[in-house]
Simulated assay, not measured.
Amino acid sequence: EDGGPALGLLPRARWPRRQVELGAEWSLMMYTDGLIEGRAGAGSSQRLGQDGMVAMVNSRLEQGLAGEELLEAAVAEVRERHGGELTDDVAVLLLGRDPERIRRRGRSASRPGPVSAAPPATAPAAASVQRPPLYGP
């Protein structure tokens, strides 16, 4: 309803603004259309669509999935429903704030300072290579 032109399509494009109060705990999932343009079921011509994606993610949230597990499960289910690899590129980003998790990480930190959810810059890249990719071909 509040959409606008595709990003990068028109150089002077404008999009509607909306302010949303997020509260203390929240998450925001952003994804490209390649994820929702997958088929709703193998052999079906119906697309998953935004409503299907919301229902699928909500069911995974009810199972207690969050963060990277949620993203991997969602992309895997979309591929399974589609009947294989998706035909369009897929990018998914999940941002969130969980005050309790921040407190736990703060208590377990060996020295005071800002808490970061991202791994250190020196973390070995091989660890991320072992997991299945969250993106399409």
Rank of each mutant, 00 (worst) to 15 (best):
A73S: 10
S128N: 15
G113P: 10
A127K: 00
P99H: 04
A55V: 00
P11I: 01
S45I: 03
L10D: 05
D33Q: 04
R97Y: 10
P119G: 05
V54G: 00
L61C: 08
L61G: 07
A40G: 04
V75L: 00
V115R: 07
A6K: 08
L61Q: 06
R104N: 04
G52I: 08
P16E: 08
S27V: 07
G136L: 00
A126I: 14
L35Y: 06
G4N: 13
A24R: 10
G83Y: 07
V54I: 07
L134K: 03
L94V: 08
G113V: 07
A55T: 08
P124C: 05
M56A: 14
R103G: 12
V20A: 14
A76D: 00
A91V: 11
E21Q: 09
R60M: 09
L9E: 12
R107I: 12
V129K: 14
A126L: 15
R111H: 13
L35W: 04
L86A: 03
G83D: 02
L95F: 05
E1K: 05
E72S: 14
Q19M: 11
Q130I: 11
D88C: 13
E21F: 01
G64D: 00
E68A: 14
P124W: 00
M53S: 04
L7E: 05
E80K: 15
E1Y: 06
T122I: 14
M30L: 15
A117C: 13
W15P: 03
L93P: 03
A13W: 02
G67P: 02
V90T: 13
P114E: 03
R47W: 11
S59I: 08
R105T: 09
A66G: 10
P132K: 12
L48M: 03
W26K: 00
R47F: 11
A91D: 01
S110N: 09
R79S: 00
R81T: 04
S59A: 15
R111T: 15
D33G: 01
Q63K: 13
T122L: 14
E37P: 11
E21P: 11
A66E: 10
R79N: 00
P99D: 06
L22E: 04
P11W: 01
N58H: 04
R81G: 05
V78N: 03
R12E: 15
A125E: 13
G41I: 02
G96Y: 10
R14M: 10
W15S: 02
M56K: 07
A123K: 02
E69V: 03
A42W: 00
V20H: 14
P133G: 14
A117Y: 12
E100I: 10
G4V: 09
R103H: 11
V90F: 10
A55E: 11
A40L: 08
P133C: 05
P112W: 01
G41V: 02
S44H: 11
P112F: 01
G38L: 03
G96E: 12
P120C: 06
R131F: 09
R97Q: 10
G106K: 14
V20T: 15
G3D: 08
G41N: 03
G67D: 04
G67C: 05
A76G: 01
R47I: 13
R14F: 07
V20L: 15
P16K: 06
G41E: 11
E77Q: 15
E100H: 10
R97T: 04
P124G: 02
R104E: 13
P112H: 05
G34I: 09
L95G: 03
D89Y: 14
A109D: 04
